[in-house]
Design a protein around this nucleic acid. Structure first.
Length: 112
DNA sequence: ACCGTGACGGCGG
DNA sequence: GCCGCCGCCACGG
């Protein structure tokens, strides 16, 4: 079991537990924050193994705002996110851009 | 160390 | 906008 805090799994868990309520992060973002932006798939594997409990795994979604998987119960993932104020439309997040954790707020420049 | 697996990501049709 | 294919990385036996 990769319980090493400095191991990839350890770092990933650190990132996941850092995701605040009402916000979501993609597997790719978590992987990047963990040190490997290319390890998005590996992050999913770690979520699946879920070596730690009590972590907001439901706040980790797929790219484009897709809910992704959740033990085969994507409905539960959507429900948990909705409970935090995240708008979910089927298997997709409506305000994904708005609730994205690592996403920075767009500047109010009229020029765009 | 090698092979197979998986809660992914991006592109093309 | 949805479906399918290939590539990517880390985990487990």
């Amino acid at each position: 079991m990769t319980r090493s805090p400095d191991g990839f799994t350890g770092r990933v868990l650190r990132v996941v537990e850092r995701i605040p309520p009402g916000r979501v992060a993609t597997y790719g973002d978590v992987a990047a924050l963990a040190g490997n932006a290319r390890a998005a798939r590996a992050v999913g594997a770690i979520m699946r193994t879920a070596p730690r409990q009590g972590l907001p795994y439901h706040r980790v979604v797929a790219s484009g705002g897709l809910l992704g998987g959740y033990g085969g119960r994507s409905t539960m993932k959507a429900d948990l996110l909705r409970a935090e104020g995240v708008q979910v439309r089927g298997t997709r997040i409506v305000n994904f851009r708005a609730c994205r954790w690592n996403a920075r707020p767009a500047r109010p420049t009229s020029a765009g």
